[in-house]
Design a protein around this nucleic acid. Sequence first.
RNA 1: GGGCAUAUAUGUCAAUUGGUAGACAGCCUCCCUUACAAGGAGGAAGUUGGAGGUUCGAGUCCUUCUAUGCCCACCA
Length: 914
Amino acid sequence: MELSTQYNPREAEENHYKRWEESGCFKPEINENADAETYSIVIPPPNVTGSLHMGHALQHTIMDVLIRRKRMLGFRTLFLPGIDHAGISTQLMVTRQLKIEENKTPQDIGREAFTEKVWEWKRKYGGTILGQMRREGISVDWSRERFTMDENLSKAVINVFVALYEEGQIYRGARIVNWCPQDKTVLSDLEVEDKEKKDGKLYYLQYPIKNSDKKLTVATTRPETMLGDTAVAVNQNDERFKNLVGEIIELPLTNREISIIADEYVEMEFGTGAVKITPAHDPNDYEMGQRHNLQQINIMNPDGTLNANAGEDFDGLDRYKARKLVVEKFEQLGLLEQIKDHEMVLPICERCKTVIETLISEQWWVKMDEMRDAALELKREKGYPHFTPHNPHTKVYTDWLENLRDWTISRQLWWGHQIPAWYDENGKVYVAKNKQEAAKKAGTENLTQDEDVLDTWFSSWLWSFSTLGWNGEKVQSSRFGVQSQAENSSTQDSGLRTQDLKVFHPTDVLVTARDIIFLWVSRMVMSSLKFLGERPFDDVYITGTVLDEKSVRMSKTKGNGIDPLVVFNEYGVDATRITLAGSSTGMDFAWRDEKVESYRNFANKIWNATRFCLLNSDGAKVDPATLENPATISDRWIISRLNKTANDVNEALDKYAFHVAVDKLYHFFWDDFCDWYIELVKDEITAGDTPATTRIITILEQSLRLLHPFMPYLTEELWQKLPNTNADLHNPAYKSADATIMLADFPTGDANLIDEKAETEMQLIFGLITNIRNIRAEMQIKPSDKISVHIAANDKTRRIFAANEAQILKLARANEVILGDKLEVPAASAKGVLTNGAEIAVPLEGLIDFAKERERVQNQINKLQEEGERLSKQLANKNFIDKAPTEKVDAVRERVTEIELQTKALKDNLETLR
RNA sequence: GGGCAUAUAUGUCAAUUGGUAGACAGCCUCCCUUACAAGGAGGAAGUUGGAGGUUCGAGUCCUUCUAUGCCCACCA
């Protein structure tokens, strides 16, 4: 079979995904073993608005590596894909599109027409990201794909809402909230970001005191809110203002009088030490208002303009225009004391980046106390979920839970799950699964449904089980420790889906980025405990963030994002995947093209190693049995290395140490297999020695299996080309499936095939060859010039070298190896010494530059002596001998002996070079 | 204002429970040797951010300083 000399990723990528999918390899049902252990991951659903970014590629790769290995190990695996309706983002996108295309607002076309437009949008763009996921090669079960607004998932949302309401966990109430004037909706604390404003101003306004010509100056960053002031506060310990407490202020620009109150919240050092209090538009002022029973005056419309409460001059005016006008009027009145520069932090909407208003608004809330306690208890008592990396995520998670407050779940949007609450003519609320039931409760059909929808996360937090068929029809809320509802749920739903819940929940691991630990991870834990009485996942793997080349966070606004699709096209999906996995230590890491380039080269190396094996494969076939009976020391060595690598890879993946797994595979394949093993057995292979070719192809095939979770396309492409790769190589769970490396048994490393003796002996041979190559390079001996190699060594070493003479001759480019117990060579020889004291010499007959050779030998002596001195010093230290473990002391002694032997030999050599 | 993390070769990053620092890329020398020049062989390069401490032994543990980054928080 002829392969091109270069690997073409595109070809392999096009060849396999469809076949894998169509043959059912991605589905758990492919597993024929009824008793197989399960392993499941639900994908964090990307936003329907999004397109794939490097963070997705990283997370998806990690998940797919985990899933593919477990599948090959014979687990019944489920990797479930889906997308999120992403309420605010999506509504924002469609609103923008509507503006551009038809110059209309959502209100212009109405709720029904608008949501239909969003569905259209979803159908059109939702597919894009799914296509991108296919390109990544992730082995998700597309037959179980979910969308947060699917019928069954929506049922779950409604039923959960109703259940929590009936339990008194959900309530409606007016409180101070974050309000986005652009999106005209309330936002939870987690949907608000900070933005630094360096050119902020602090305005000093003078408030006249009644029956006095005195004025009290307050400092504010938001002068316009003074129109809603209902008090001025000072600190009770502030000598400057002590006697003003209780005085009345005539609030300028209004006809209102407000009083001066005392509150310890006021910091004397800041501003003037007197604070204007606007309970309806500032969270702190709100709290103070509660304490002092202050009036709340709402001066703001939902769109950020001021309302009639602000007074005639300001009614309908934009908040920034109002600010300007307030300042102007204060100036006219001679009450503007000064304006200072003031760096500050503004709260902005996470989605549209508009500056948030705080105002009082009636919203739906979920009490979090009980659910929070259950989540904390689960962590404390059972250790779930287990975070990797443990630091800092464990503490961040528990700290956040401990300070959790009630969750605002209503949103003034149209895109999402509409709140299942109806109002009668008197405004009395009825919460029910549908209008019919609400009508039953209300005793009237004359009901209007709440206009609002639920926070996107109110559906996402059910994701681990709503995707597996749970719809809450028979919701039975419970606390941690109570028997799982899943156990007896077979009657509530039909078919596979409920089965899925039983079989696959709790899932095994959640892989995600750290920015949604609060928004999503913690809430999933709480909802799963609440409604299933069990955890949603055992482990949480938090990936690092992919930064750009300059170690700066990628962002749309900065435009420094690296598009994974571009990288796929340039370097191939497999190279990208293994680069990401190899960089995944849990820390943030900078993207480097050089890195993916080197893994692109690695892919090419694998391709060419296979190409070499296939060029000489006549009559050979993949046959794992040949690994049981290695013939030569080099065979025993490579098989030992293979098994060690397999063992290390499994161990690393069990610990989510992806970079370790990649590193082991890379060096095993490139260094051990290609650079040494292929070279050692090359003659036999090219001579068509069938046992040798069978052996090398089998080792290659095992290597491809180990690499497969990281590089699925390349390994499948090559595996299919190997002779005799068939379903017999599959894990026993997949006996009747079509032959694919996806289902091959994943090597775990056989301890019986790990051969330390062979490894030590091969190290000796490699040391010899390297030493000779070093002499050749430094003495500038042409590659075409053959040399003779003299070796003085003990019996054992001589036997090893004698047994591998052919390989030594070839790899050292020598025409003879002369073994003895003493060197007998002319003075004009280049010399070296191996770690065990064996001496080598290469006669150079007049070619030698004595000065240069002396320098070379002296350098070696220097290095050894440096190390020797350090170690001798250690041995001279009585404390070291007494306190260090004996193995350690022995190891140092051994090394010192080695060094002495080597140094002595080198010094003797030096003598002969005079 | 609190909390956390990071600082290692020119660059990007590794280094299990403390045992004397590695990889990749780059750089230097040689080689188009019949798998691969996206390759092969050899080589140079680090007082592990600074200063103390614990220990026989510290990149690793403790204290402190410096720099950077992230998260949380209601400072007008």
